[in-house]
Computed example of a mutant assay.
Amino acid sequence: MKTYSFRKEERLKSRKLIETLFREGKAFSVFPYRVVYMPLQEPCKYPVQVGFSAATRKFPHAVDRNRIKRLGREAWRLQKQELYEHLQSQSRQLAVFLIYTDKKIAPFSILQGKISVILKKLREA
């Protein structure tokens, strides 16, 4: 059964974990995203914890930053299932952070394609 939800427990919010992720995690880029990820040691309910961000310098208006993050979360929510099943079959867990790097807001259809590529790369990694 596929669940298309994005619950609170799936969001990456722990400051300590985020700092560790940026210090020790691996990274790759799929324009317009920079993806930082690392395997998790502590068990949690979901196989992936994910965070999204957009730079204040590139988007001075909070409305734009929020829109970018909302579009990214929605694209992730609709496509995450294959990655989740793959990680659960191997009993692995990941922490992932997606940083939006473009200077303008891309349409949802483009972001959806990019998130799809990111999910494939994470499955391989």
Rank of each mutant, 00 (worst) to 15 (best):
N66H: 13
F6C: 03
S91Q: 15
L87N: 06
L21Q: 00
E85W: 12
E19C: 06
Y33S: 02
G113N: 11
I115E: 00
T20G: 03
K13D: 06
R67K: 11
K104W: 13
G113F: 08
S53Y: 08
K121V: 13
Q112P: 03
S29C: 00
R57N: 05
R65W: 05
L17W: 04
L119C: 10
E42W: 01
V117G: 03
L83P: 01
A75G: 08
R73I: 04
T101P: 07
R67V: 01
R57F: 02
R15Q: 12
R23K: 13
L111R: 08
R11H: 04
S53L: 00
Y46R: 03
Y84T: 02
F59V: 05
H61F: 09
Y100L: 12
N66V: 10
V117A: 09
R92Y: 08
R123M: 14
L111H: 10
A55F: 02
L98Y: 04
E24F: 03
L71Y: 13
K121L: 04
S14R: 04
L40W: 02
R57A: 13
L71W: 02
D102G: 14
A75C: 07
I68Q: 12
S53P: 01
E9A: 14
L40Q: 07
E42M: 00
Q88L: 15
T101A: 09
K69D: 07
Y4V: 12
K104C: 10
E124P: 03
S29K: 13
H61Y: 12
S5W: 09
L17D: 13
L83Y: 05
K80F: 11
Y33V: 00
N66I: 07
P107C: 05
R23D: 09
H86M: 06
W76L: 02
A62E: 06
P47W: 04
Q41Y: 06
Q88M: 14
E19N: 15
E42S: 02
K58F: 08
I18H: 04
I68F: 01
K26I: 03
W76A: 01
R15W: 02
P43M: 00
I118M: 04
R73S: 09
P43W: 10
Q112L: 05
Q79L: 00
E124T: 12
Q88T: 15
L40R: 13
E82Y: 11
K104Y: 15
V35Y: 00
P60C: 01
G25Q: 07
E24Y: 07
L122W: 02
P32I: 02
E19H: 10
F97L: 09
E85L: 14
S29M: 01
G72N: 03
K13H: 08
R65I: 06
T3L: 03
R73P: 05
H86F: 13
R70M: 01
G72L: 00
T20V: 07
P43L: 08
Q93L: 14
A125T: 08
S116L: 07
S89T: 15
L40V: 06
K69F: 05
A75W: 03
K58L: 11
P32K: 05
Y84G: 06
I105L: 11
P43Q: 07
F108K: 10
K114F: 05
